[in-house]
Nucleic acid binder design. Structure first.
Lengths: 230, 230
DNA sequence: GAGGAGTGATTGTCAGATAATCTTACCGAT
DNA sequence: ATCGGTAAGATTATCTGACAATCACTCCTC
């Protein structure tokens, strides 16, 4: 009788590979042992090692190139977000929570954005250029793309990488509702964005916060037909 | 010369499996074709299918049970966070950005927390119980654990699932510096937490925000020995 | 009718082999 | 002597076939 590996073999292997990287202080690009060496050192077949490495490669933790070997992967948030986004159709997050979370992130960065605008005029001109492109467009499709880009640029303007990553993640969940948002305020949105940048450039963070919060929360009214929560 | 399969076989397979789930509108728990069936329908060997499914399983998109088959997986944010957290040792995020991001998340939820405290006394008592345990402990190790739990409970008290998930993610990045934080204010931290709950219970969000911001930012002074940025 | 043994289906793991691709070193031509 | 190409070695990519482990279900027995 064996208390056996409740955890599957490949998970253990994946864990060991990760620990190997950590204990040896490997940096992205560094080489890992070959599949055969790993298999031998772990005392398992090469196939199990492969399944583990393939899974890790899928996550971007390692990279494998034919004829070269395994290397430690570079961070690749996009890849994670892509796969996570797949779940957006499956997981039911309360739409209102998504909006509230967005409010927290975007209004939270405003003080930092205002400060960086004061020190670097390029940031303001970048945002204003986006608004000009807003006013030029007539197509709904491009308008949506610009809207996404604007809000992302806002987060980027804070210089806080983690927040930008969180924003990307949130956005993926939002895609699910994108259709229901389209009928909403259009020109209204443009002017709101413009006012926001004006207020930020003037250093009026308090009013900018109110402006942005109203802008985002205006989505609440026209988003959830109903939420089917258990 | 062939422009041919730039993308590796298993990535194509993984993509096709994901599309299969989408086009057939499968919900978590629904069964997928067997590995053999997938292999045959894709015209490849079962092993390649396996590598794809194993990778997807690693991400939590599918689940496989011996003797049963493949089923569509349920969302598992913890799993993603676990693997993402691994990158924290590799990617060098500016410690100051981590702190700023924390400030945004935790102060951002305070209005929601205050509102929920007003409606549900259980939330306040939960936080106060944590503080009591703070005062009872003498060990640094448990103190750190409690500190983590307190800040997580704060985010949870907002009822915003996405923000809690982001907080978990941030926390993983923080682990790297945990050692350097330990010498910092100890009793000081307890009292700060206590004051925070008092202010929230009184509905004074503005002062609570200031209290929390100061508390978190106090870490800045004793965190970064140096950052080796390229 | 209920419970247990058996059977089939499916995944888990292994071994071995061949193809594709990259690195490196060697060798020849200029 | 230097440059370029080619061949050999190394390593991953993929396939074939097989056997073990586990689970669901049926059927048989009591």
């Amino acid at each position: 009788m064996k208390i056996v590996p409740r955890t599957k073999m490949r998970d253990q292997v994946a864990q060991q590979i990760k620990e190997y990287i950590l204990t040896n202080q490997l940096a992205p690009g560094d080489r890992l042992p070959t599949e055969s060496q790993l298999a031998e050192s772990f005392g398992i077949s090469r196939l199990s090692v492969r399944e583990a490495t393939k899974a890790l490669e899928f996550l971007g933790i390692v990279e494998s190139k034919t004829g070269v070997g395994l290397t430690v992967g570079r961070i690749d948030m996009d890849r994670i977000v892509e796969h996570l986004g797949f779940h957006s159709g499956l997981m039911d997050v309360d739409p209102e929570q998504l909006i509230d979370s967005r409010v927290i992130l975007e209004t939270g960065v405003l003080p930092y954005v205002a400060q960086r605008i004061a020190n670097d005029p390029m940031i303001e001109s970048g945002l204003r250029e986006l608004i000009d492109r807003f006013r030029a467009t007539r197509e709904l499709k491009t308008w949506i793309a610009l809207d996404i880009e604007f809000h992302r640029s806002l987060l980027e303007a804070s210089g806080l990488q983690p927040i930008v990553a969180f924003g990307d993640l949130l956005h993926v969940f939002f895609r699910r509702f994108r259709d229901s948002v389209k009928q909403g305020g259009w020109k209204q949105g443009i002017e709101s964005h413009a006012r926001l940048v004006d207020l930020l450039a003037a250093g009026n963070v308090a009013k900018a916060t109110i402006e942005l919060r109203n802008h985002i929360e205006s989505h609440k009214e026209r988003m959830p037909p109903r939420s089917r929560r258990s």
